[in-house]
Nucleic acid binder design. Structure first.
Lengths: 124, 124
DNA sequence: GTTTGCGTTGGAGTCCACTCCAAGTCCTAG
DNA sequence: CTAGGACTTGGAGTGGACTCCAACGCAAAC
């Protein structure tokens, strides 16, 4: 058997600190199935693993780029359903990337409008 | 007296179409003071002017770049209070531009993460 | 001159994504 | 061994920004 050097686990508080979600949000995400049932101690406290944290990193990325929770749940389902769903996952992520690109282009244009407004105010 | 060639007015439906807000949102914005009381016909129907539309364009830009309604209301108040408030308006818009820039940088980074994820899935 | 549809109001309802609460248990530092 | 902080639950509450509703009045096309 391999020597398991890094089996770190984290309390929900520590996980919140590391993931950028609040404890409440972590519990909420577990409740609605965005994250699989987290390991528990004998007394019922959650212990998050590095794998959980990595998945949370993906969720954070999707969430912060504006993906609705419902679509993230769909993605989570695909991940749960194994490698057969990889083409669909790619489709989902590509669609999302397009949405993000569109959003960035829109922001850039509107940023310029704001800059123009500022420049105009400076002439008054 | 000058010849007034363009005194176009628009119904709320037309204004919605042109501004990109819904009729309900336009009424809501008027109610909360984001837009000044709109002109009315004798029978009480709203008639938006080109000036209204221009202001709505500014609001759309601010809103779509994530400015909270409350801060837009603050900006609207400044505009109402005359030219003395221009330095403050500049400060407000500059702060907002920084926020937009930050948001774009964050989106760009996270877009790359998503791209990496897609690339990875393609290797599986 | 009537039908079809656009407009009016105040107020209630919706949606999303959390966020908070109370009452209790568990952990750990001293 | 005890004090204080971290964790548990189910369920209720929040905040922001709309969005919808009913019951009605007005408009304009034929």
């Amino acid at each position: 058997m391999a020597h398991n050097a890094t089996a770190a686990t984290y309390t929900i508080g520590e996980c919140a600190r590391r993931s950028g979600f609040t404890m409440d949000t972590l519990r909420y995400y577990e409740r609605i199935g965005l994250i699989d049932a987290v390991e528990r101690t004998a007394t019922g406290q959650r212990r998050f693993t590095d794998a959980d944290l990595e998945w949370l990193g993906t969720l954070k990325c999707l969430r912060d780029t504006g993906m609705p929770v419902e679509q993230m749940a769909r993605f989570a389902d695909l991940v749960r359903d194994g490698d057969d769903t990889i083409p669909e996952r790619i489709r989902l992520l590509e669609a999302h990337r397009v949405a993000v690109d569109d959003r960035m282009a829109d922001l850039a244009a509107k940023r310029d409008y704001i800059s123009g407004k500022i420049a105009y105010y400076r002439t008054v």
